[in-house]
Each structure stands twice: as C-alpha cells, then as structure tokens.
C-alpha cells in the first residue's frame, strides 16, 4: 500500500510538470522495428484507413492519438493482424517486422501474435485463476518444459507487470476478482509471459481510474527498456507522458508523425494544432 501511495505521489508530480524524464521528449534515434507502407483497410465497402505509412522505433513508446473513430485502433490491430478475426475486413499495403512482411501468406499468424503481444481497452482476463491466465500463453506455445519452468515464467511475468507482490498469496483465485487496474496489469503480464518483442496497447487505461492509470503509465515507462511499445490513447496528456514518438490520426488518415515533443509543442499541420488545442473532439 505504501508503494502504491508513493507511485501516486510521483504521478501527481508527473502530471504537474508534464514529464520530467530527460529523454521523454527527445526524438528516439533508435533502429526501426516496424515499417508500415501505404496501409489501407476496408470494412466491406467502407474504407477505414487511407494509405498509412509510418516507422516504429525499437524499444521506445510510440503513441497514436486522434479523435474517436479516426482509425488509430484499426491501424494498431493491423500490426498483429487482429483484423483477420473481423469478417469482411480487408487490409492493403505492407507492414514489415524486422524487414519481414507480416501479410506474407506464408507467414503464420499464430507465430506473429506470439511475437507481437496485445493489451486491450477493457481488461479482459480469462475466467480462470490468476496463475492460469498468465500461464495460458506459454502453455499453448509450448514454452515451458515442465511445471517449474511454467512457475518461473508466471512469476517473472507478474513481477515485470508489477503485480506479483499484490497477488502472490492468491495465485489460484479467479483473475476476474481483481480490481480494474490489477486486471489490466494481469493482462500485461499475460502478454509478457509469451515473451513478445512488441506490445500493442489499445487505450489500456480508458476503463481505469486515475490512480490505476498512473500505475500503468509507470509500468509502460519501465517496459520500454525491453519492449517495443505502441499505444493508442485518447488522452493527449498520456501520450505526452509516456511516448517518445507520436502519430496523429484524423478521419482514417495519418496527419502528422514525429517526436512527441515536436508534435505537442510545434505541430506542423493545422488539424494537429486544432486537436491539441481541443478544437477537434
């Protein structure tokens, strides 16, 4: 509880000063991990995305912002091919991960999703125990040779997600019994357990209260040392706090992309400016 309180204090400070970390706003000169070129998405006859091209750097947080319905989540779901599960969705253009086209027919989508994990808008723990939730990914992918291996993965994943201390005495209780913020961290632990290289987060804090949000943001900041993170958010403050690179979407188009500090302090396009000033809903 003390730890939690400390985090809250720190977060309040963060909010007040709008990111104090030295590298928070500097442009990340890191190698490019994911490269999207001219990506389009159609749902049936309706076009949802128009020619999106963007580069996503390794071990940094890239955020997608924009008004609701602008296509930011749709694009995020293209990166691990979640759009495949929606009937009638058609994706055009190319997206490469480490130079490999993820829409290549020979590529196994199951394998791809093991490499690119995802955290969703609403915490969605499986109706199983906390332990089983985290163990599920390693189990299906055959990552653990025995029970000890599995225990190890589960515990280290929970630790990385900053949840272990809170749940270590009740690993066998249902995951749905946790609080919203804990559930979301459980989902992050679940994603980490598979050992992904990239983690996609689709508005991970939209269903959480400010305290839980602060904890998750803290966690994202820590995770970026080991993972490439892409986060969709409707909160500009959040994007400013956690990301190094920001992309602004509007009406299915990518309007502007650049280092987070530039986007927020010195936007090039008028639409971006309007959005940041609160003129676009």
């Amino acid at each position: 509880m003390d730890m939690l309180a400390g985090k809250v204090k720190r977060t309040e400070a963060t909010i007040n000063t709008m990111a104090t970390r030295p590298d928070a706003h500097t442009a990340p000169d890191r190698p490019i991990r994911i490269n999207a070129e001219d990506v389009t998405v159609h749902y049936g006859a309706k076009q949802a995305l128009f020619g999106i091209s963007i580069e996503i750097p390794d071990r940094a947080v890239t955020s997608f912002i924009g008004p609701s319905g602008c296509g930011k989540s749709t694009f995020l779901r293209c990166i691990n091919r979640m759009n495949d599960t929606i009937e009638g969705a058609k994706v055009g253009g190319t997206i490469t991960l480490d130079g490999e086209n993820i829409y290549d027919p020979s590529l196994d989508v199951v394998e791809l999703r093991a490499r690119i994990g995802m955290v969703f808008q609403k915490p969605n723990p499986f109706p199983k125990s906390i332990y089983e939730n985290v163990a599920y990914g390693p189990k299906i992918h055959g990552l653990a040779r025995n029970k000890a291996d599995l225990d190890e993965i589960v515990i280290s994943s929970l630790k990385k997600a900053g949840l272990f201390e809170e749940v270590k005495d009740r690993l066998n209780e249902p995951g749905t019994g946790l609080s919203g913020g804990q559930q979301q961290r459980l989902c992050i632990a679940r994603a980490i357990a598979v050992g992904p290289e990239v983690i996609l987060m689709d508005e991970p804090c939209s269903a959480l209260d400010p305290i839980a949000t602060a904890i998750i943001e803290e966690l994202i900041d820590e995770l970026r040392e080991n993972y490439t993170i892409v986060i969709v958010t409707h909160s500009m403050q959040q994007a400013a706090r956690v990301s190094q690179k920001t992309a602004f979407f509007h009406l299915g188009k990518l309007i502007e992309v650049g280092p987070t500090s530039d986007i927020f302090t010195n936007p090039v396009h008028k639409q971006t400016q309007d959005y940041i000033m609160g003129r676009i809903g």
Binding site: E111, F120, F126, H141, C187, V194
Partner: peptide, 24 residues
C-alpha cells in the same frame, strides 16, 4: 474481448474456443 485476448496471445481459433470460449 475474451476472444480477442486469446487471439492476441497467439492462440489458434480452436485453442481460443476450447480453452477460453467454452469454459467461459
């Protein structure tokens, strides 16, 4: 969202159905 959660981990369709959907 439950299905998405399993897909997002890289579960196949039948794994999603057998391990997540049916138990739920």
């Amino acid at each position: 969202t439950l299905r998405d959660g399993a897909y997002g981990l890289g579960a196949t369709k039948s794994e999603t159905i057998r391990n997540v959907l049916l138990p739920a």
